[in-house]
Simulated scan of single mutants.
Amino acid sequence: MNRGQFEEPVTLLVGMGFPRKIESVMEAYVLLQDWPAVSRNGAHAIALNACKAGIAGEIDPETVRATLVTFARRNDILLPDAVSPAAAMGNEMHAG
């Protein structure tokens, strides 16, 4: 396994709700650096600091991944691994 790689990627809904797989500490760092300043919160700061510590080798990639998942949940952008975007849309269409 490459240094900084997550054991399992984290899939987030970004932009206009497009899924994006984040597979490493560096990818998480880039995403968080590009996050709009107006939308940043405490969870963002914690995740960004974890990324910096992960890049420096101070914490392991799975700890960084956990902070990214928490950030994503708090911002309602985490896409569950078991649900694909097409399946999620299909479920919405059948509801009602």
Results as ranks from 00 to 15, higher is better:
21 K>M: 10
8 E>C: 08
47 A>F: 06
10 V>I: 14
37 A>D: 14
42 G>H: 11
14 V>L: 14
29 Y>H: 15
45 A>E: 11
47 A>T: 03
23 E>C: 09
20 R>Y: 01
45 A>F: 11
25 V>N: 05
42 G>D: 11
38 V>P: 03
13 L>V: 11
35 W>R: 02
39 S>R: 15
8 E>M: 03
15 G>W: 03
26 M>E: 15
14 V>P: 03
24 S>I: 00
42 G>C: 07
47 A>K: 05
11 T>V: 12
36 P>V: 00
11 T>Q: 07
48 L>D: 10
38 V>E: 15
23 E>A: 03
18 F>A: 11
10 V>Y: 02
34 D>Q: 05
22 I>L: 13
37 A>M: 13
12 L>D: 06
46 I>L: 13
14 V>C: 06
47 A>Q: 02
32 L>Q: 08
19 P>V: 02
44 H>I: 04
21 K>P: 01
36 P>I: 02
41 N>C: 13
15 G>E: 04
35 W>L: 00
41 N>G: 15
23 E>N: 06
11 T>G: 05
38 V>C: 09
18 F>N: 12
20 R>M: 11
24 S>T: 12
18 F>Q: 14
24 S>E: 08
21 K>G: 03
35 W>K: 01
45 A>I: 06
28 A>M: 09
12 L>R: 13
32 L>A: 10
30 V>W: 10
42 G>S: 09
28 A>R: 13
36 P>M: 01
37 A>G: 07
24 S>F: 03
19 P>W: 00
45 A>P: 01
12 L>N: 08
37 A>H: 12
30 V>P: 06
34 D>V: 01
33 Q>Y: 01
27 E>V: 01
16 M>S: 08
41 N>S: 15
44 H>G: 07
23 E>R: 09
18 F>D: 10
34 D>N: 09
46 I>Y: 10
